[in-house]
Amino acid sequence: MSSIPRFWRSIRSRYNLIGKKCLTCGKVYFPPRTICPNCRRKGKLTDYKLKGEGKILTFTVIHVAPEDFKRQAPYIMAIVKLDEGPKITTQIVNCKLEEIHIGMRVRAVFRRIKEDGSSGIIHYGYKFEPCKA
């Protein structure tokens, strides 16, 4: 993803977890959609800021990483069910490999995701960390 406009136009969602809520059926979506799959043309989607908290539904530890993430391996990736309903794929940070488990409460943090080489753009966005007691 080296195109600047491509990254730029999703910044609001990547930085601030802004998804969509359908005013017709009440369902919340993240990543944002342009049409509600439930209501289709009867739906009315509006911006909706997610709190950024939820629990881990499943996870993996990536050992063989893509080129851009090689330096981070091994790292945890998970699907988190956010409290507002949507599921999100995210890296889990500030968590020991042996502590990660299904059901763990996590919250969003702002992090550097990757860089496009030494002179390309730096991608920032959300990762999640355990909610400490």
């Binding site: 999703s10 990536i62 995701i113």
Partner: peptide, 17 residues
């Protein structure tokens, strides 16, 4: 790409989950 692969997810990773 936008919401899985670009965040560091791999194909084996998806099936692992």
């Amino acid at each position: 790409q936008e919401w899985e692969a670009n965040l560091g997810m791999t194909f084996p990773g998806l099936y692992a989950m």
